[in-house]
Design a protein around this nucleic acid. Structure first.
Lengths: 225, 225
DNA sequence: TCAGCTCAGTTTGCCGACAATCTCGGCGAA
DNA sequence: TTCGCCGAGATTGTCGGCAAACTGAGCTGA
């Protein structure tokens, strides 16, 4: 049983995703297959699969015969993502109210607790993962596989948007607001939980600088229009 | 410029999709790569790409080291799809009210007219395509790329569910209800359009037989549990 | 009789190599 | 100078082949 399997596709996707979320890969950068194959020490076939997965998640765009590039979401697209996300998250919260066991509550509280630890330790990677994971956990507890899949999509795109447009240096999407939401759900006050969620999302969006377009180096034509 | 390019991946996906929607491919059937490569006269690599695309659309499930099979959506999953679809379509209609040009109205009416023609001619393939296309067009006119993508997903999955669970021989999701929705939108009565859409979707769902599980040949364990 | 094992046949997963396409430098003419 | 052309280099798209994994029939032994 030698360690010969190499790195899995999912692991490649996750590494690239993290690199984008941590702003180590800037939007517009080309992800060359050969280069990545060399880095991860696998053949191009596996890289291609990882890239198509990343395209599905909205993190890269693949141009035929050109290659894969880290997405540069426009301001309109960013607002669009947040608009849809507000609707979907409201849907999640409303659906969650119908069936929440004590074990579910425990999972939520445990998750928020881990967020607190990550925040205290300034563990950027964990903070990013757990922050999205909270919303993903809510979707999972809603019991709808579809909502779960949609949230997965929305979260990865939100991560990209945050990486591109975030204004402040720190993530203020801290565990406090998540905690309030959990408490509202625990108390059975779905109306309040929904309101808190809307406020939370608006808060996250408000910390982005969505007024001006960043990095117009590739958008000269749009700038001159 | 010889005809040498062969069939494109998108064309393969569409052919398989149609075969499923027209019930010529039954749920649970394995889509073997070699077999399909022979049928479409391309190499397995392209077939693999088509299959992953079909998996993304929820039409097939890919089991590692086993292969790709036409999805067998459970009753719960079917209800889940319709639940999410009602929410999303409501979202689409509400968003559409804000900005509709005369050209948009014209496109909608033209589409419904084509649906009428297809229905009159009993052109099953066109009926299936256009029926989903109407909802897709609404999503496009909503101006949100996200809603459009989500509707694309939901429609393909709905098509599969309809193919598996539909009770009546004919599609009663005729152009009449679509027409009413268009007229409500034209009149600017978004509230009415939203109500009509809800009713329309409930109508479609009600024509399915979601009480019993079909084809348990592969689910013997579940049947005996 | 039946559970467990073995092994050939089939199918998928992966890789390296070749063909098609695009990029971008230089080169020449208006 | 500037525009268009072109060819070398680089990158992606596709293919056929090989190794790994799974399936199912047949065999063995209790």
């Amino acid at each position: 049983m030698v360690e010969q399997a190499g790195i899995s596709i999912q692991q490649i996707v996750e590494k690239v995703w993290l690199s984008i979320a941590e702003r180590r890969l800037r939007p517009g950068v080309q992800l060359k297959e050969g280069q990545m194959a060399e880095i991860f020490e696998v053949s191009r076939a596996r890289i291609r699969q990882a890239l198509t997965a990343l395209e599905r998640e909205g993190l890269v765009t693949i141009v035929p015969n050109r290659g894969a590039f880290v997405c540069q979401p426009s301001v309109d697209e960013a607002r669009d993502v947040f608009f849809v996300r507000r609707s979907v998250e409201r849907c999640v919260v409303e659906r969650i109210g119908k069936s929440m066991s004590n074990a579910d509550i425990a999972r939520l509280r445990s998750h928020v607790a881990r967020e607190r630890v990550a925040n205290a330790n300034d563990a950027t990677t964990d903070i990013i993962k757990l922050s999205g994971g909270f919303h993903l956990l809510l979707a999972e507890l809603s019991g709808s596989d579809f909502l779960f899949g949609m949230m997965r999509d929305l979260i990865s795109r939100t991560s990209l948007i945050t990486a591109v447009y975030r204004n402040t240096a720190r993530f203020n999407c801290g565990p406090d607001e998540h905690d309030e939401i959990v408490e509202a759900i625990t108390a059975g006050d779905i109306e309040k939980a929904s309101r808190l969620m809307q406020h939370h999302l608006e808060h996250v969006e408000s910390e982005l600088d969505l007024r001006e377009v960043r990095d117009m180096s590739h958008d000269l034509k749009a700038a001159l229009a």
